[in-house]
Design a binder for these strands. Structure first.
Ligand code: FES
Ligand code: FES
Lengths: 148, 148
DNA sequence: GATAATTCCGATAGAAACGATATGAATAAT
DNA sequence: ATTATTCATATCGTTTCTATCGGAATTATC
């Protein structure tokens, strides 16, 4: 029960894109160097983010990536889904035989628990947006500025 | 981001124990057969549950396992912790170099997000108890009885 | 048109986690 | 003594995750 590195790298990359001026796209190479992430791996992630419609790309020299949506419309669940797929917290393997827990599948408490949990989990991730994360960042900076 | 089979098996086993009369302990073999779970694997899980203080065991012939606490005091997070360890949703690998996200570690938004998320996640799992799950089970049965 | 920087694509390698099995010792009821 | 059980530990096989590799397609710049 961990978030994958893919997910984390994607978040970090997106935050960087958000902080950059909107005109020039940022290349994968730059992202990789600035954020200290493995280049080829990051490429795959950027590809996923593109397929998911979160960023768009400019090919060829001087190309790179930019956000394709306003950051307030990018939820963390979007990022999750793109990097890790739909959230399915269980496989219910033993349930296929219909009496895994001594109950028929749709009467299974465990099944019900997972379903409940899934909903809450997704809603929670949806409640965070890229924008919200960035604002937290600003607050943190101001805070530390005052302290220092 | 999935619950492990260990966790699921543990839940199923605990629910079975809860449903059994309190006098006779239930053997691992019985649990394995009734619940259709791999015997040796289940043994390991029962061992974990014991170490975690959730069940207690009776050794030797006629031995087995019983709950060691009232089911209303066994939270799903207890079970989670015993089977999967403490919930730590991230490793923050790239943060060790102090400028992973271009920010110092304690100013890192991602870090903050994970911390927030972790708290909510744990509280959510704590809000479910074994007892609550069992009651859901009863409700489901009554419901289906009425329908049928 | 050549060159260099880039996205894009598919394959694969390496490592870690997970699920499960195997062997057998210790314990206790019968 | 026998049998059923918990307990301890090692190991195996599979899958999933992380990362690397080689190269094709695209485009700005010279
Ligand atoms: S049917 Fe899957 S947990 Fe019961
Ligand atoms: S330091 Fe770990 S995500 Fe920023």
């Amino acid at each position: 029960m961990k978030f994958s590195a893919k997910f984390e790298y994607a978040l970090v990359a997106l935050l960087y894109l958000k902080c950059e001026p909107d005109e020039m796209p940022v290349s994968g190479r730059t992202l990789s160097e600035k954020l200290n992430l493995p280049y080829r791996f990051l490429e795959q992630i950027l590809s996923d983010l593109k397929k998911g419609g979160i960023i768009r790309s400019v090919r060829g020299k001087q190309g790179g990536y930019k956000l394709s949506v306003e950051p307030e419309h990018i939820s963390i669940y979007d990022v999750y889904q793109v990097t890790e797929g739909k959230f399915e917290p269980w496989d219910c393997t033993h349930g296929e035989s219909a009496d895994g827990c001594g109950q028929s599948h749709n009467l299974c408490v465990i099944n019900q628990f997972y379903t409940d949990f899934k909903t809450t989990f997704i809603d929670l991730l949806k409640s965070y947006t890229l924008d919200r994360l960035c604002n937290s960042a600003k607050n943190l900076k101001n805070l530390s500025a005052k302290v220092v």
